[in-house]
């Protein structure tokens, strides 16, 4: 029984290490802040959780404490990544869009009126030009 638990812990440890590595690589390779957040937070969340849980399995006396850490990571990481994404958009960093500007639907929240006035002014300018 103990051997099976040990082997399970080792596999979990190895998987966690690989995901932590992938988190770092993803943060390095992705083209803009939002995609970096996606790759970084997801991979490191699972990686950190499984490394910490594997320590709890390999050393059964520490299990409750490691469980506290796992719950903390699962609660804290999405909140901080959400706060960073929100702050980054408020700051004015537009996301990298492959498919064109209509893929950013969040922009409508900030500039609904600006768009209309822009259209009006351009129409007025056109009228003046034609006149």
């Amino acid at each position: 029984m103990n051997d099976i638990l040990d082997i399970f812990g080792m596999i979990l440890l190895l998987i966690g290490g690989i995901f932590l590595f992938l988190g770092g690589l993803g943060i390095f390779r992705m083209p803009d802040t939002y995609n970096r957040l996606q790759a970084g937070t997801k991979a490191t969340t699972l990686g950190g959780m499984s490394v910490i849980l594997s320590v709890g399995i390999l050393e059964p006396g520490w299990f409750i404490k490691t469980l506290v850490l796992v719950i903390f990571i699962a609660l804290a990481n999405p909140i901080s990544s959400h706060a960073l994404a929100h702050a980054n958009y408020k700051r004015g960093n537009k996301p990298y869009l492959k498919g064109g500007p209509e893929y950013d639907q969040y922009r409508k929240v900030f500039e609904p009126e600006v768009k209309e006035t822009k259209d009006n002014t351009t129409e007025k300018v056109k009228e003046e030009e034609t006149a």
Binding site: G23, T41, T44, G47, I52, I73, S81
Partner: peptide, 14 residues
């Protein structure tokens, strides 16, 4: 940089 810091924090915890 802050995103990188966040990732570093999690890795350092593990």
């Amino acid at each position: 940089r802050t995103v990188a810091l966040d990732t570093l924090t999690t890795i350092a915890m593990a």
